[in-house]
Design a protein around this nucleic acid. Structure first.
Lengths: 125, 125, 125, 125
DNA sequence: GTGGTCTAGACCACG
DNA sequence: GTGGTCTAGACCACT
């Protein structure tokens, strides 16, 4: 499991950790029931405070992605993938809505927006 | 000129001020060369610290939206609208790109994304 | 006598007035003993507060460029031109010194500086 | 890292801080990636308000000289030196241009200006 | 601990 | 009256 932390980024470190772990579940790199590193181990390998990792794991547990048991460690929970799907869909819709709203206010045509969207969609492939 | 401040919002107050003034320029409610309220006047009417308004005006000036002179006040600058257009286009593209990226990772088809975008675009009308 | 006030400029208005009057003395547009407009007349024609013009005239008198008599008006003083020459030379030297200092710190060669100076000198002709 | 604040100076304190930090980068006293004091620490050691230091750091960050992260601190950014070089060159050119302009208006010959410039350039060595 | 935001005062130069 | 700078407090999110 490899997580990359960027300090130049404006996103807080604990959020970078959560989002990357979620992405690994989605990509299949982490499967349900699989163990993830202990907070101390991850903190050490990322050169990051234990408190930061703790916050990340707390958030993941709160949102149902992992299950943490004292003395045993943390594990990917059974329906983590569904949670992730929902979350991402919600976010995608939100981005599209904002793009639509601003675009309309600036008199950017729907065709232009679709063109851009298609471009970005194929670009990343 | 009417600005609405929401404290429940997670956006800082000075940012709410700047974005609403920019929007007023775009909508034509404020035209080029027109004076905007003095820092003290706006601070008083919004029940907000002078410093907060000052920060907002400072940002607006630095980004070229207004021109401010000691002893005279602040005025909408000549090319404020162009700056606004550019800024909004940049942001729209960013939203579309993020939607495209997440969408692709979640196996949402391009058709589905375009469908959503079209929906949101026409919804606001 | 024509004075141009720029609000986009970061220089205070009273300073724009003084510097332009001084320049007119130098260029011969204003000669020694000649009357300059009354404060109120100038304020009106420049669409500027009387207090602003008053401050400008005060500075000019303090530096010996004009002589003001209550009830008579203000006149270019006898040795205004000398004062101006001295002042400008002082300022020119100061600019050159600053350019030399910064340039040296940035490892810009003396030749390069002279080249630029020559360029600017001939450019304005 | 030693910064000297002069209250007799007409330059604002936050500007004195920014310019001295920039100069330290240039002189090599601060290197890329190196940490600079926390706002609170610097404010305390300079007997100055935290807000004043904050304003200085904000400016430095906006101009690309430092990178600052909440909870971590501020660090000299990778290309700080390039930014500094550009800034200084711009300023040098501006000084030379002003010297050229005033000099020409006062009938100071180009030779005389070059002579002065050379003098100042070698004087500081 | 760090920086980001906000408040309520103050003095200054400029108009 | 205007904006520019500064002070001495405070709370927040993040490390």
């Amino acid at each position: 499991m490899e997580i990359i932390i960027s300090t130049n980024n404006n996103k807080p470190i604990y959020e970078q950790i959560t989002s990357q772990i979620k992405a690994m579940v989605m990509s299949g790199e982490l499967s349900q029931g699989e163990a993830i590193p202990s907070m101390r181990a991850l903190a050490k390998s990322l050169h990051v405070s234990v408190i930061t990792v703790q916050k990340a794991y707390e958030d993941l547990q709160r949102d149902g992605f992992i299950e943490t048991t004292v003395g045993r460690g943390s594990f990917i929970s059974a329906n983590s993938m569904d949670f992730y799907q929902e979350e991402q869909q919600r976010q995608t819709e939100q981005y599209l809505q904002q793009a639509a709203e601003i675009g309309r206010n600036c008199n950017i045509s729907l065709e232009k927006l679709i063109e851009l969207l298609t471009l970005f969609y194929q670009e990343d492939e």
